[in-house]
Design a protein around this nucleic acid. Structure first.
Lengths: 233, 233
DNA sequence: CTGGATCAGATTATACATTATCTGGAATAG
DNA sequence: CTATTCCAGATAATGTATAATCTGATCCAG
């Protein structure tokens, strides 16, 4: 088995600057995503510093990073709060994905080499082999699949935007499971996508990706809705 | 004459957190855009603090903000550098605009009220009246024109993304002038856009906006190219 | 209800410890 | 002799600690 840790496209970690800042960023982000930090909960710099055994400087940096990705809302002189990871948040993000990914895909179709195809097929094979048994692994592989396509895009801004959003969605969807229907759909779409790429069908591939992202977003939203209903009912 | 200062869509200043941080952000950003700071020039925290009469903390924050918007590149343990505002940078940004603005427009067409139309026409009248005489004023009005359309979009992420990019392009294009051809084109497209909105022609409006943004980006790029050629030759 | 006291906590200011990177030149291999 | 390696110092980022200010929010007396 090869490694399957999802790597960000070359040269674009969320790296703000510092080391601690980065790890703090991850820690706090996980706390937010996992729900250990309530929606709208206040993030007091001093407390965070104490809790994570650092000084306030790295904390502030981490909060800035988190703000940049929308996990935290900061108001001047009033500090930071946990942004509710609600349906609107997720919808906003994946809607932007629906706009951007097709464009990235279109370009990729025109640039794909036989080696790229091989890579895609390899990853897809691993996805099928795993067949959603290991959710984390699936997530990594699926991300890798798309990364292969977008990684070399000339528009670094767009690629980075994609990656950041991807990370958010991945983090959120970790909380849920794939329905059987969605599993089948994902497989189908990936296979079809590879086919289109082989045939150089840029437009069809772009359209398919739009659907793929749309479907993925919709799926997560429905899970969130269901979870919320369960909580309420 | 009414005021015409371009306002960000409700509730989305670049406000990272602090007051000084924000103003520093603006000062440094202007230095970068205006070229007072060379491309790739190193931004030494201590120096900036001294130059702006503050301590290092606000400077660090400002740099983070600037990084978030792409004006500055930070590498761990090596500090910040001015990101070259080159053609690639501009292209990346406006290409994303081409993807996002049509979607925002499409939605607006379905939501526009008679009051919105009136507002658009008023702003357009001011644009025509000014007729590019005052470049800054044109920029403000043009921004306002688009802000009216995107301001109330439910996807705050997308709207914010638009606004940030808008600010960048506006800042960059301040350095150049509109060609006569471009002026005519802008007027034409705005008028046509209003027309489409009135008729509820969402698709046509979206397409037009795509062209509008594309043309605007292309125009700036050509100006940059020309300026560079002039510098070189 | 209004103006002021009070408090929590953000923001800013300093000073310093620690650490990573860079630089010029000596030492060394080839 | 030239090129690479290595190393001491300089430079500046990053992190820690503390204190001074400033803001916004809350509480209370009038």
């Amino acid at each position: 088995m090869t490694d399957f840790k999802a790597q960000p496209p070359a040269g674009m970690e969320p790296t703000g600057a510092s080391t601690q800042g980065d790890s703090l960023y991850e820690l706090i982000r996980d706390d937010i995503i996992s729900g250990r930090l309530q929606a709208n909960e206040r993030l007091v710099v001093a407390d965070l510093a104490k809790r994570h055994n650092t000084s306030t400087n790295p904390v502030r940096e981490a909060l800035q990073l988190l703000r940049g990705e929308g996990f935290v809302v900061i108001s001047p002189n009033r500090g930071a709060r946990v942004r509710p990871i609600d349906q609107n948040f997720v919808r906003d993000i994946y809607e932007i994905g629906v706009l951007i990914e097709p464009a990235l895909t279109r370009w990729f179709v025109g640039m794909a080499t036989p080696e790229d195809i091989v890579q895609l097929e390899q990853v897809q094979a691993q996805i099928e082999e795993n067949n959603f048994a290991d959710a984390i692994r699936h997530s990594e592989l699926d991300t890798r699949f798309h990364t292969i396509m977008y990684e070399r895009h000339y528009n670094r801004h767009a690629a980075e935007l994609w990656w950041r959003h991807r990370e958010v969605l991945r983090a959120v969807s970790r909380r849920y499971n794939f329905t059987l229907a969605r599993r089948a759909q994902v497989m189908r779409e990936h296979r079809q996508l590879i086919q289109f790429i082989k045939e150089g069908e840029a437009e069809k591939a772009a359209l398919l990706v739009a659907q793929h992202v749309e479907g993925s977003g919709r799926h997560v939203l429905e899970q969130m809705r269901a979870a919320e209903a369960a909580r309420a009912g």
